[in-house]
Design a protein around this nucleic acid. Structure first.
Lengths: 371, 371
DNA sequence: CCTCAATTGTTCGGGTCTGCAACAAAACTC
DNA sequence: GAGTTTTGTTGCAGACCCGAACAATTGAGG
């Protein structure tokens, strides 16, 4: 972005922008190029762009069946990424941390330049206390009261470890780097085992008073619905979670590796049951989204997780279901889009968790004493 | 609050506090009393308190069957209040504005001192665009596309008119002056013709991207529910709105004046139908609240509107319903309380709409040129 | 009653952040 | 090549806040 653009968009004075850019250049976080004359008269404005060097973050995703790690530079540049399968019965926290450490070391060695590692961001499918990265519960991993941030910090040599909920990070990733870049109030709906929700309110993540906001999976949408693992019945996730979709499609007992891909194959071959299953699931997805539109009045809903792959097939039903439930005014203010980043949303969000702090106070994170 | 308290709570220096308080005293918005020696050694700290003089706001509530106006000073001090019945077929915008003007004049004449009138805050049961006080729709009043702020501004001599949705203002009132004073993330649920919702997020009203946030009345909770005037079926408000309650209680055809009071009378006399109706309605209220707790993770839910009067009778069912739906973690972070302000919540919120701007920049609103 | 400690108000100087205005530099137009 | 337009550069000034030194006011202890 050119300096003069920065000035007009921030409302700050040219002199102020000059000072600030100068400081960032001195920190090595920003590179300034001589501006190319674009069009019209006037001196060309020099272009400042975020250096992808200078600071690196480890981003990690701890799933039941896989572990993914990436090295991410500023601006969301992914240097490298590893995704390794995991056996679901091997999810003990100490095992996971050991494997995470091994993967991280590999990635850090492969970095093109020895940049400053400023921290690690980690996504977990569970209820996480952000302040200290403590996992209250992660039912799918079988975790209960695990101080995962502390464990990671003691195994990896990183200055800082931040942990957050999967869907919250997906939302952050899509908001900063994906489909939600232009949004102000965004809702990210991720198909997972259940359904995860991440909310961006006023261009900032909305966490609720204790970090649990977005547990919409257990929103009651169908009093006659099937029983939910939470003990109640008719929760949204019992209608739109992976299990609901697969059992409707007759894939509940399918023992292959990637049931969602199998479902898509069957759709391609004209399987009526698969189509009907997707149709019904999409309708419930839309109804839940409609509820959320009424309550939160977002300008964008981004659909991701396993729905990333399915969305082209169900966009119409989802929109119809949402429009049916939502009131006209909030409906018209909102666009429903498919995730742009797919599986990377979470990793980029995890990186953002740490990079956001760097951006908020650059000098504090890169060893630099202002003159 | 004493000056030294102010200093420690804001983190500002004593010298800074001195300057700021001095400025506010000069504006006549704050009064400083010599401190009374409380306990322990040390010079007693002078106590600064908000003067209820100096600035007055007109607060108004435009309902189908009544118009209420109040003069409110800083700190939420109500000088005077008039509530006048209205015939429901007399809700034409120009008529309403005329009557509002007449009532306002009466109140302003009765003010003890000729304080500066800094603006008017108005609550309307409808979908309002805040930026210019334009009412998109107010179905109960029969309004459609009414520039009500503009109309009021041209009939009343006030420097500023702000208009907002009823429930949003109730939320603001309870948050600043009532049950939600200690809350950070509050949800205000008001029983009205339907059900209104106001959300406070991070100690600030959450309006959504176009000001419609909180239209939870049409959250789909019961696919088998009765048809809603929005066209859909099973909306929350068809289960918890006034009509649902009264028809369950056999009061739908009751032609008396205040059906809710009649309902309470019948409860007192052991009417089983009344009790069952209230019970079922309360359960649905709780279920919806539980959904909201999952999504928003508030630290407080305040129940008001016509539920203000009923809440003591239904607190138990409401809590049970909410607990059933909400997940443990967010449930434990949340308290459900009854509105403290009752009918005044809306007026105080309306006043706050204008007073909030005064507080944000006092010198700009009270004619004062800094020396 | 006097002295000392504790707490707070008051005053003054200084630091940081930002804006403003004037000037210099680099492009386009005629 | 002169004038216009846009932007970078520089120096100065104002707003805001802090910190330190000092004054004021109280309680505690002898």
């Amino acid at each position: 972005m050119s300096r003069s653009q920065l000035a007009s968009e921030t409302g700050l004075n040219r002199s102020t922008i000059r000072d600030l850019i100068g400081e960032l250049v001195a920190l090595g976080l920003v590179v300034e190029n001589p501006g190319t004359p674009t069009s019209g008269p006037g001196r060309p404005s020099s272009v400042a762009r975020v250096s992808s060097r200078g600071a690196v973050v480890l981003a990690a995703e701890l799933e039941v069946d896989s572990i993914a790690v990436a090295t991410v530079g500023m601006g969301g540049h992914i240097f490298d990424e590893i995704r390794e399968a995991n056996t679901p019965n091997n999810t003990r926290p100490d095992n996971v941390v050991d494997r995470l450490a091994a993967l991280s070391e590999k990635l850090l060695e492969k970095l093109p330049t020895p940049d400053t590692l400023i921290g690690a961001g980690v996504g977990v499918a569970g209820v996480v206390r952000r302040s200290d990265g403590f996992v209250h519960t992660a039912p799918n991993l079988g975790w209960q009261d695990v101080p995962i941030a502390e464990m990671i910090a003691s195994h990896l040599d990183v200055p800082e470890v931040r942990v957050a909920n999967e869907a919250d990070l997906g939302a952050l990733g899509e908001f900063r780097r994906g489909a939600g870049r232009l949004a102000e109030n965004m809702v990210f709906v991720a198909g997972e085992v259940g359904v995860g929700l991440g909310i961006i309110q006023g261009s900032a993540p909305m966490l609720g008073v204790s970090g649990y906001a977005g547990e919409a999976g257990h929103m009651r949408v169908n009093p006659n619905g099937r029983p939910c693992r939470c003990g109640a019945a008719g929760c949204w996730e019992t209608e739109v979670g992976e299990e609901a979709l697969l059992s409707r499609a007759g894939l509940a007992a399918w023992d292959g590796d990637r049931p969602i891909e199998e479902l898509i194959r069957r759709l391609g071959s004209g399987d009526a049951a698969a189509h009907a299953a997707l149709w019904e699931t999409g309708r419930w997805l839309g109804i839940g989204i409609g509820n959320l539109i009424n309550i939160l009045n977002p300008d964008m809903v981004v659909v991701g997780g396993f729905y990333h792959a399915l969305y082209p097939h169900i966009a119409a039903v989802v929109e119809a279901g949402a429009k049916e439930v939502a009131l006209d005014a909030p409906w018209e203010a909102c666009t429903i889009r498919r995730s742009e980043l797919g599986a990377d949303a979470l990793l980029l969000g995890a990186a953002e968790l740490v990079l956001g702090e760097l951006v908020a106070d650059p000098a504090a994170h890169v060893g630099f004493a202002p003159a």
